[in-house]
Amino acid sequence: MLEIKNLSVSFKDKNVLQGLNLEIEEGKILGILGKNGAGKTTFFESLYQGQKYSGEILWQSKKILRENISYLETENYFYPYITGREYLSYFSNDKLTKTIELAEKFQLPLEKYVQYYSSGMKKKLALIGMLMLDKLVNILDEPFNGVDFEGVHLLYDIIRELKQNNKLVIISSHIIETLFHTCDHIVTLENGIITNTFEKSDFESLNHFKFV
């Protein structure tokens, strides 16, 4: 279980996160909804141990370590003169065959330099690399941004497979429907505070929320 206890982050005079408390079990998918500036990225950076915070983030009752987590950021940087295949080979040669099969499903030109990839293709490449890490906790920050229709449905399948493998997944998205398709629970984050928690049976009530 992932336990987040009184998580707070402040920058100068601004409180970005204010006393967040969450418990998420393995094999569950949590969606985070919030406007730009609500604190989603700061929350993810804190989970990933890349941001100084107060409070506790525990995995299996111990302080979480970065080695337990994989993190797909909204924007991903790639060295331009590297091919997709070379990029993926850095993660794990043991899983490269299965990974190349996934890349083919995403229609990624692995022999091309990444500088010629579209933003959606870069997102898919980063996602495949993240999956190769095979971590217990997986953070997906706006994974559907820039991804085509077919890619979105492949993403649905990948997220479901993570769930079946008892992985914990946390997703943010401005597209509410994508969270409806994938999540067990959804929380709303407003001004650094979790204001609501929704179960699957209550998801339809989220349709009136505006998160732009």
Rank of each mutant, 00 (worst) to 15 (best):
G151L: 03
I159N: 01
I171R: 09
D141V: 04
F149G: 00
V187M: 04
E161C: 10
K200D: 11
I139W: 03
L131A: 07
N166T: 11
I175M: 12
E161Y: 13
I139A: 03
G192A: 02
L162M: 10
S172D: 10
H153P: 00
L189D: 05
I186Y: 06
K200H: 09
T197I: 09
R160P: 08
I175H: 12
K135E: 04
I171M: 09
N145P: 01
V152A: 05
G151P: 06
P143R: 09
G151N: 06
S173D: 15
L168A: 02
V152L: 11
C183T: 15
E190Q: 08
H153N: 14
D157G: 12
H174T: 06
K163M: 10
E161P: 05
G129C: 04
G192N: 03
P143I: 00
I158W: 04
F144I: 07
L179V: 13
H185L: 14
I170Q: 01
G151C: 05
F149V: 12
G146V: 11
M130I: 04
L155G: 07
G151D: 07
E150V: 09
N165C: 02
H185Q: 15
I170M: 11
D141R: 09
F198A: 08
V137D: 00
N191C: 05
I186T: 09
R160N: 15
K200W: 04
I186L: 07
T178A: 08
Q164W: 02
V187I: 14
K135I: 09
T188A: 13
E161Q: 15
H174N: 12
V152D: 03
V169E: 05
Y156T: 13
I158H: 04
I139K: 04
Q164N: 12
D184N: 09
I194N: 03
V147S: 08
L179M: 15
N166D: 13
N165L: 09
L136I: 11
E150M: 08
T182L: 14
T195Q: 13
E190A: 01
I193H: 07
I158L: 10
I194D: 10
